[in-house]
């Protein structure tokens, strides 16, 4: 793969978003762990968020498709078991994108106040520990009364 750099591939892969939260890239989510260029192929290393996350299949397809659009067809996608994914791997850019999209980003376990992503109020109540996907919980804002998803802290 002469001339191709991992940096270039990473830039291309910014286009691959989480299928469930289409505003955050797999890189900002922490799913994309590494890109290596060997003589024969591009090696892409990814980790699952939750063990049973069905989005992993879609993500692999989209990585292949994105790289194919840039003329790269020799791609080896490796699904790793380590490191275990946790929400600290989500970048600041990813958290900001999530909040704009209406999902309260994860906060550390010690800081329990979950802000409403709509109005910023700290008066919020957990309605259900599981929201629209395994990685989210369902909350309601007691100030603006809007329900919202909270991306759970997972560490």
């Amino acid at each position: 793969m002469s001339g191709l750099t991992a940096r270039q591939v990473l830039a291309w892969l910014q286009a691959v978003k989480d299928p469930e939260i289409p505003v955050i890239s797999i890189q900002d989510l922490g799913v994309l762990q590494a890109v290596e260029i060997t003589n024969e192929q591009i090696v892409v290393k990814i980790i699952p968020t939750y063990s049973g996350c069905p989005a992993m299949y879609v993500i692999q397809d989209e990585i292949r498709q994105t790289l194919a659009e840039h003329g790269q067809h020799e791609v080896d996608i490796q699904l790793l078991n380590t490191p275990a994914w946790n929400t600290d791997m989500i970048t600041a850019r990813g958290r900001a994108a999530m909040k704009l999209y209406g999902i309260a980003p994860p906060i550390s376990a010690s800081d329990q106040v979950i802000q409403c992503p709509q109005c910023g109020s700290e008066k919020t109540t957990c309605i259900s520990q599981f929201g629209s996907t395994a990685c989210k919980a369902l909350y309601r804002c007691e100030s603006c009364l809007e329900p919202f998803d909270y991306f759970k802290c997972h560490a």
Binding site: S51, G52, F130, A134
Partner: peptide, 16 residues
């Protein structure tokens, strides 16, 4: 909500 929770736990377990 509980329907969703039960099947989400199921999904984790099948992942394990």
């Amino acid at each position: 909500e509980e329907d969703v929770a039960l099947t989400n736990v199921s999904l984790d377990l099948i992942g394990h």
